[in-house]
Simulated assay, not measured.
Amino acid sequence: MLPFEVQHHATMVGDRSRLEAYQAALRAVVRDGDRVVDAGTGTGVLISYAAALTRGAVYGIEYFPAAAALADRMVRAAGMSNALILNENVFHASVDAPDVVVTETIGALGPEENIVELTHNFLQRHPSVRRLIPSKLSIYAVPVRSDVVETVTERFLRSFSAASHDRFSYDAIMDDLRYHVGRHLFTTDLSQAAVLGEETLLVAYDLGRTENSAFDATVRVPPGGANAVHLFFRCQLADDVLLESRLSAPPNHWRHSFVAIPPGFDTLHVHYRRARFVFTWSDSGNGG
């Protein structure tokens, strides 16, 4: 049996901003009598919100057996007679005529948990779906400066320097290591960072309609002292409900993702395929 990742789920259910946003979206979208599906239900908290809004059936689909078993115990203990937990793969599960689909399969930058492919697949097989939560997902980039970036990257580099001995010194490849640090996605608290440029839209997904999440994008960093590119997602949960991981958004468990800018480079290339981001850098020659 696959293990229940209790730490991961504890972090998510402890994220009040996330839960309040989804609860507000469900209140705005679900009508009494609607049949609701939560794709990737975990321990069932979103299903508990939906079950209180409709007398229609609500289904929580969960791939991991241990999580599905716990969700089933939760809905039974709560006396939610209209809730059913299905231990199935969302890509193959079928539900009779659902009206609303909700999912929180959102990765650190948005698409890494296959939310794009999952929602497209499910809606293709369930044309009765009237509303999807979230309906849109976009990824943005913005140059920033933060002392936290310097602390994180220097700690990373010191790990190599500490292994130097005699004539074997990592100082010989330090420039290369700094470049490779810039290919790594870090996640931490950057709430005190200074924004030093405009937001760049990297990709916009129309969930349920966009079939493939793969994309390539370029971010030009203007002169001005930025030491990182902050990458964040923006989700449209309902007409007036957004969920974001940008610096100014309410704190959430996704925190803030960034890629450090290597010395001498000013252009970030973002390549995304099959739930994996690849970051590379180049120099535009324009003094960035």
Rank of each mutant, 00 (worst) to 15 (best):
M1Y: 11
E5L: 11
V6I: 13
V6P: 00
A10K: 11
V13I: 15
G14H: 09
G14W: 06
D15T: 06
A21F: 08
A25H: 05
A25V: 05
L26V: 06
A28L: 09
V29P: 01
R31L: 15
R31G: 08
R31A: 14
D32S: 11
D34G: 01
R35A: 09
T41I: 13
G44Q: 00
G44C: 07
V45P: 02
S48D: 12
Y49E: 10
A51V: 00
A51C: 14
A57C: 12
A57F: 05
A57S: 14
P65G: 08
P65K: 07
A68H: 07
A69P: 02
L70D: 01
A71K: 03
R73I: 04
R73S: 13
R73E: 12
G79C: 03
M80A: 13
A83F: 02
L84K: 13
N87E: 09
E88K: 13
N89W: 04
V90K: 01
H92F: 10
P98F: 07
V101C: 11
T103R: 00
T105H: 08
I106V: 15
G110W: 01
G110Q: 01
E112I: 07
E113P: 08
E113R: 10
E117M: 12
F122Q: 03
R125I: 10
H126Y: 06
S128G: 12
R130Q: 11
R130W: 10
P134I: 06
P134M: 10
S135P: 03
S135E: 15
K136N: 13
L137K: 02
L137W: 02
S138Y: 09
S138F: 09
I139N: 05
V142N: 03
P143M: 12
R145M: 04
V149S: 07
V149K: 11
E150C: 07
E154Q: 15
S159M: 15
S164V: 10
R167C: 11
S169L: 15
Y170E: 06
Y170M: 12
A172D: 03
A172I: 12
M174C: 11
R178L: 10
Y179T: 01
R183G: 14
T188P: 09
L196K: 07
L196V: 08
L196C: 00
L196P: 02
E198M: 08
E198P: 01
T200S: 14
L201P: 01
L202M: 05
A204V: 06
G208Q: 05
E211D: 13
E211M: 13
N212L: 07
V219I: 09
P223S: 14
G225D: 10
N227P: 02
N227R: 02
H230M: 00
H230W: 04
H230V: 00
L231I: 07
F232H: 12
F233Q: 10
R234A: 12
C235L: 11
Q236A: 15
D240R: 15
V241F: 01
L242Q: 04
L243E: 03
R246D: 14
R246L: 09
R246K: 15
P251D: 08
H253E: 05
R255D: 06
V259F: 03
I261V: 13
P263L: 06
F265W: 03
F265M: 12
T267P: 05
L268F: 04
L268T: 06
H271G: 06
Y272K: 01
R276A: 12
F277M: 08
T280K: 13
D283R: 12
G287D: 05
G288R: 05
G288Q: 01
